[in-house]
Design a protein around this nucleic acid. Structure first.
Length: 288
DNA sequence: CATTAAACCTGCGGGC
DNA sequence: TGCCCGCAGGTTTAAT
């Protein structure tokens, strides 16, 4: 569900509530939510207990809470994950999976996840092989820099992109090439750049890649300013509030409605077992 | 190595 | 009313 803007909204909210707090209670209510913490739920809890949160960082769609132990709690929201900060006495959400008490405040951090594609794990921070100044969780070493990180290098990205023998949307969704982009913002950036999702990456010119990156950064920042995109109650910030960028979408979810640029009806096509929305008038399909 | 399809889950809305 | 189908913001794993 959540892509870079939504995860950044969550990160900022989590940072506000957990910084300087000490964990006084942990409850893992569903083992699947910590399945990637290979040492098990008991070890997960043990590594959090009595530890304090020192910072909250993000790369792409991953966020992590640094601990004073040198470890970090990594979180990925998957398709339906939420991190909520609630008063301890607040009723349990239907799909509550993990609960973390924040001492001495009378609040707790809750991981709620309907589809359980998301996960939490505790692991060590290591030097960032991709050039960032801060440490990153060892298990996300395969995740590329995201386009809003200052170290993201447009030239390196352009060269990597053109070495690929695939289509542009598949490449944008590949988190080892560029991170943070999902189905919504890939379609929105491609609409803005007037590129069809199947356009071969190998044939793109450097200026086209630059233009695409500009539009991608624009749409990500605009969505962030609007609090993210919420189609329903599945994406909310830590206070349970929806974002309102849905009104800013030009292609995603607009099948049959007129393109705001040329008036042609936006089309929906199934690609990679998911929907792709584009304008037949201004995003021409490649030959073959 | 690069690339792509399948699997992992729950819930909702539409058609019959 | 109930059942079946398709669909949903994603990633990992396995197969080609």
């Amino acid at each position: 569900m959540p892509e870079l803007p939504e995860v950044e909204v969550v990160r900022a909210g989590v940072e506000h509530w957990v910084s300087g707090r000490t964990v006084d209670d942990v409850a893992v209510l569903h083992p699947r939510s910590v399945r990637r913490h290979t040492a098990g739920a008991g070890d997960f809890s043990l590594r959090l207990k009595e530890r304090s949160f020192t910072a909250v960082r993000r790369r792409g769609k991953y966020l992590w809470l640094e601990l004073d132990s040198g470890d970090a709690m990594l979180a990925h929201l998957g398709m339906s994950g939420q991190l909520l900060v609630q008063p301890r006495e607040h009723a349990a959400e239907r799909h509550q999976r993990v609960r973390i008490g924040l001492g001495p405040a009378e609040r707790e951090l809750r991981f709620v996840d309907q589809r359980t594609f998301g996960h939490l794990l505790i692991g060590p921070l290591v030097e960032d092989a991709r050039g960032g100044s801060a440490g990153v969780p060892a298990v996300i070493g395969h995740i590329a820099l995201d386009p809003l990180e200052p170290e993201f290098d447009d030239d390196v990205f352009s060269a990597s992109l053109r070495r690929r023998r695939t289509g542009i949307k598949r490449a944008l969704l590949d988190q080892s090439l560029i991170s943070g982009v999902g189905n919504i913002y890939a379609d929105e950036a491609l609409w803005r750049a007037r590129l069809h999702w199947a356009r071969p990456t190998a044939g793109l010119r450097r200026p086209q890649v630059s233009d695409l990156l500009k539009h991608l950064r624009d749409v990500l920042r605009e969505a962030l300013s609007a609090g993210g995109t919420s189609f329903d109650s599945l994406y909310v910030n830590v206070n349970g509030e929806s974002g309102y960028f849905e009104r800013g979408l030009k292609a995603y979810g607009r099948a049959g409605r007129p393109c705001e640029r040329c008036g042609a009806a936006i089309r929906r096509e199934v690609f990679m077992n998911r929907s792709s929305y584009s304008c037949p008038g201004c995003q021409r399909a490649p030959r073959s």
